[in-house]
Each structure stands twice: as structure tokens, then as C-alpha cells.
Design a binder for these strands. Structure first.
Lengths: 344, 344
DNA sequence: GTGAAAGCGCTAACAC
DNA sequence: GTGTTAGCGCTTTCAC
């Protein structure tokens, strides 16, 4: 079954008694092929267990891209979903993925050095994930270098690059309403770090929902975390030490929500009995911990799929023809698990 | 800078005033090229910002493989490290990676159906990760189908396939000694699930170290988990409820260790003051939680690298010439963080 | 609808 | 050391 000894299009053509071209047409279902011919070809494909060779296809077609996926300190749950989505889409579309891990980069490295490194590789396209997708200097440099780029989770303020944007505001809004419906009135909110564009959106969604329901928004109930478990833990201490403690805490990602639960337990509080906790993203950790976390789903692997697709669509176009668009994902799914109940 | 409008080897050859072949030789540093010629070629490459086309290379060389990476319910920390390692190595070696996620497979699906699905894809090589790498029926089927396969974390009992094996026993042994050196005598151990081959090895390492140091091994201090956070939590309850509670708990992976810490906190125990906790793997979670986890490092991405390399080495060989070997990784690194202290 | 010829960018094999 | 000739497996272009 190995590819090495595998059938080529030529053999399929011979077996079916047609030309290579016809086989190719059947494969790509482009122009019309007579039903009878198609059947013959399909039979030959089946008989020979033929699989088209991706490399030859890419080379001949001339549309295969080398796509760079750039990340900086993502949570492993985020990264693995992202990779799975990107990899599958690249395969379907005949592209190739190259990872660029910027996490180890020294503090204070010049953005232009990063850009240089990215350019050196000779990529046909680039996917920038947060917080890099919010780095204006980097975006400008890639744009100057003429590197086709797609931004994840943040729109390009300069309007040159396309982006795939999840509606963080709507998601946070829904989740807040979910908590309110459960009877919570005093809700603590842990934001993400300021350099992540989505942090602000999530906070806005939360605040808007609170305001719409006429609920008081004590400024002390909104604290800034950095998306780590640890910060979730530490900030929960702070939130719970307030003169009037919250009955629920909404963390801007799952890792921090896990930290919230840990901190609550350390204080001998029951979750959700004494404190309801919700997260954001629906990454692997949310189902792994105890109690399992109620959270909003961010379809990370779908986002990766769309980013690759956007790049692919503009691949053969000239720079002037490239259409820049923001691909919005606005389906909001609240994944109900075990970390929410009505307040005491 | 885009590949599309980029220089080809032909242009480089013209610019340097040599033949394509010479450029190719410089690129692949195979046979000897005169210093002066090499310099000329390198200058041309630099001037044109030339990048070799991977597709063309793979096609012409005829040694590019499509490698399938098969997994079943891995922790996301494990999966992301695995993907990063495999992806980078594939790129270097000019291979292509295809993911096959078997997690969603229905309980009780016939192994032969899985094998069929794997064969259909037309892979040139397969990497089986645990617990699939311990599935004898699957191994036999892939072997019957003639699919070149490498097993991760488990040797092939039939001796037909190569494997990359981390020395779990030695690692667990070292970690146990580390705990003993800290003065712990009563240590609880949480194993992995029985279907994971490494579970037994890790337990053996633990038991051997205990025995070597003349320490009592209360059978009640060894319990079986399933690698999830939740099982770590639940089993800790059990361990701590024993008439004589342990002063330290060694969990067979980091997720469970995180669960141990959570359970300890729930009981208002301080870690490491009241209970020392250690994990296994050094996945992302170990540095994310609080207190940060002391753990043994399993070089997952190096393991993936070696698995891809093994496949690659045997790529062009005939079946008879393939050399089967177990690639042992026996460097043991204990990553000291914050979850261990001397017992009270 | 279908086929023949050319060539994508590179490397293998052999010549010189 | 270096150049020449083929050809990897497919798609494109343009015939028919």
C-alpha cells in the first residue's frame, strides 16, 4: 500500500483506457466528463488504490503555499487546537505549514529583527495569532515586506490585512446574562492582559450585560489577569477579600478559571455551591478539572481553518486584487458543565 | 519576497554563471564544489533571495513521505509538544504530516475498521502514539498491510516495527529517590491506566527505588488513575484518608499531579508544607499551576523528532532491509520547582 | 468531451 | 569539479 510502489495517474489512465487528462478531470471534477467515462476511471482508481501525489499536484498547479503560523506563549490547549485546525485545512488545500515559535524571544527584541527572521524564511503567507496580531509595528513591517498576512482575533487597524475575528463581546455578553439568569448579581470579572485585543472586548461584553440588567458594577470587581492559572488564583484571593464578595466569577479564559476554582477550594469554598465560576474558550482543561467548567466555546480550530482559507483564496491574485476582509464568527455556544449554580 | 515571484534555481544558475546542477550541489552540500564557485553561487542566492521549492525537491528526489500521526485522547500538553516536534522534523526532512484523531471513535469499534481507515489514506509511514502503540491487534493489522510504522513509548512485541522509548522506569526511579532524599518515607503513588504501557514501567521504577532504600511499600499507597486531573483528585482523597497518610504523592503524569494539589488544597493542606507532590512529563500545566510542579521531564517533542527520523531513514529501503530498532531515550531530568519540601 | 504536448523546479545518473 | 540529459506525477494549454 505504500505510496512508493503506488499507482500513478498514468497507470490509472491505462487501466481505464483513457488519457491522463481525463483522469485528472475526474479527480478535480472540473470540466464535464461523460458519466460512462467517469465510472470507468473511478473503477480503475479503486482497483489500483490510487492516491494522487500531493507534491506533483502542488508543483504542477503552482498554487501551493508555504504558510507560516506564528505564535507567542499560547496556552497549550489553544496551540493544539490551532495546529490541528490549520494542519487539516492545509492538507485539504494542498498547502504547507511552518511553525514559528516566538515565545523564546528575548524581552525587548526589536520588532524589525522578528520581521527579518520571518521574511528570511520565504513564506507565501503568514498567520499571526494573538497577541502578535495586535502588534502594529510588526503588522506594518510585514506589510512593507509584502508578506500576505492574516490576523487572528484582531482586525487590522490599517485595513491592509484580512482577519478572522471571534465575537468576543457577544460571547462575554451571553455568558454574563447566563450568570444573571441564574440569579447572580454580584459578579467578579477577571480580564485578560491589556496587550491581547480580545481582553477589552470580553470586558465590554461583560459590562454591557451588567448595565443592561441594571446591575451595579463595582470597579473593584473587575481585575486584570494575564491568562495564566496563577493569575486566576491570585486575583480570586483579591476578589474574595472584598468587603462584599462576589457570588460568581467570570474569568476571561479557561486557565484562569481553573485558577479561580483552585483558589476557592483553598479557601474551603465549594464550587459551585459557594461560588460559581465560568471560563472562556472551552479548551481541554475545562473538561479535565473538577468540577468541570461551564464556559463559552471559542471555535479555535475553525478559526485556524478560516485563516488558512483566507490566505489560500488570495494566493494567486496580484496585490491589487487581494480582497481584505474580516471574517466574523458570531455563533456563541455556552457549554454548560458543573461550575454554576444559583447563589445561596 | 513572495515565493510566487521568487527566483528559481535556474535564475540563480544564470546569475552565478554556472549550471543548475552546481547550484543544487551547493544547496545540498553533497559532492565537492570548488570554494570559488561556491562563493559565487552563494552570492547569487543571497542577491536573488532564493529559497528552494520544497515541492519540486520532494518530487524530484522521490523521497518525500506522507506520514500519519495517530493519536487517541492525548492531553493537550502532550499533543501540542508532539505536533511541534513532528512538524519541525517533517519540514527539515521534507516530509508531510497528516493527523489522524481517533479520539472520537465509538467505543468497541472494530480494530480492523480503524486499520482500514488508516490504510485508505495511502500513507508512506505511520506514527502510533500511546495507548495505540500498545494495541497488538492494530499493530498486527498495520504490519499485514505493509505500512511502515513507528511506535511511540512502547516496544513492538512482535519485533517488526521500530520504536522510540523513553526510559520510564529510570525516570520514575530517579524521582522516587529524589523524594526519599528529601526525607520522605511514606509515599503515595498514582499509576496511569493499565492500557498505557508506560504506566507499569513508571510503577516499577517507583517500587524498585522504594525497595532499594528499604522502605515499606504499603499496597494501599499505590492506586490506579487514568491520567486525568479528576482521577488525581479523587485518588488523593483515598490516599489521604488512609490510617497513615503519605507525606508525598508521586503522580504518573502532570495532569494527575495537578489534581493532587487541588485535592490537597480542598482539604486545607499546604503544598509542599503538608504534602509534597511530584508529577511526570513536564508538560505545560506543570509551570502553570500554583505551586509550580516539580516533575520529571519527558522530552515529547524530541521523541516525535526521532519517530519521524526513524521513518525517514527507512523510507527508500526495501522491506527486507528495514532495520528495526528501539531508540531509547534515557536522559532523566528532574525539573525542580515548588511542590516538594522535607516532610514535617 | 477528450487527448497530446509542454513544463512546474528540482535532483539522479552519467558524462566530461 | 562541473555540465548534460532525463524525468519525478501532475496540471496547463490548446488542439481535436
Amino acid at each position: 500500500m505504500s505510496r512508493r510502489q503506488n499507482a500513478t495517474i498514468k497507470e490509472v489512465a491505462e487501466q481505464a483506457g483513457v488519457s491522463q487528462m481525463t483522469v485528472s478531470r475526474v479527480l478535480n471534477q472540473r470540466s464535464l466528463v461523460k458519466e460512462a467515462t467517469r465510472l470507468k476511471v473511478e473503477a480503475a482508481i479503486e482497483a489500483l488504490n490510487y492516491r494522487p501525489n500531493m507534491l506533483a499536484r502542488g508543483l504542477a498547479g503552482g498554487k501551493s503555499m508555504l504558510i507560516g503560523l506564528v505564535y507567542y506563549n499560547p496556552s497549550s490547549g489553544y496551540l493544539s487546537e490551532l495546529l490541528v485546525g490549520a494542519l487539516k485545512t492545509c492538507r485539504e488545500l494542498g498547502h504547507h505549514l511552518m511553525l514559528e515559535d516566538l515565545s523564546e524571544i528575548e524581552e525587548g527584541t526589536d520588532t524589525s529583527e522578528i520581521a527579518m527572521r520571518l521574511r528570511k524564511i520565504g513564506l507565501d503567507g503568514l498567520i499571526l495569532t494573538p497577541p502578535l496580531s495586535a502588534n502594529k509595528a510588526l503588522i506594518r513591517l510585514m506589510s512593507d515586506a509584502g508578506v500576505r498576512t492574516v490576523l487572528v482575533s484582531h482586525e487590522d487597524p490599517t485595513g491592509q490585512f484580512s482577519s478572522v475575528v471571534f465575537d468576543d463581546t457577544a460571547a462575554a455578553h451571553s455568558m454574563t446574562e447566563y450568570l444573571i439568569e441564574h440569579g447572580h448579581k454580584r459578579i467578579g470579572f477577571i480580564t485578560g492582559p491589556a496587550e491581547h485585543p480580545s481582553s477589552l472586548s470580553r470586558k465590554e461584553g461583560f459590562e454591557r450585560a451588567m448595565a443592561e440588567h441594571g446591575l451595579d458594577l463595582d470597579p473593584g470587581m473587575v481585575v486584570e489577569g494575564d491568562f495564566t492559572f496563577r493569575s486566576g488564583m491570585e486575583l480570586t484571593e483579591k476578589l474574595l477579600s472584598a468587603s462584599q464578595a462576589p457570588t460568581a466569577i467570570f474569568a476571561s479564559n479557561d486557565d484562569m478559571a481553573a485558577g479561580v476554582i483552585a483558589a476557592a477550594h483553598r479557601r474551603s469554598l465549594k464550587v459551585p455551591g459557594d461560588l460559581s465560576v465560568v471560563g472562556f474558550d472551552d479548551t481541554a482543561i475545562s473538561a479535565a478539572i473538577w468540577p468541570q467548567l461551564t464556559t463559552v466555546r471559542q471555535p479555535i480550530s475553525e478559526i485556524a481553518r478560516r485563516a488558512v482559507t483566507l490566505l489560500s483564496e488570495n494566493n494567486l491574485k496580484k496585490d491589487a486584487e487581494v480582497d481584505v476582509k474580516a471574517d466574523y464568527i458570531d455563533t456563541v455556544d455556552i457549554i454548560e458543565r458543573e461550575s454554576v449554580s444559583d447563589p445561596r
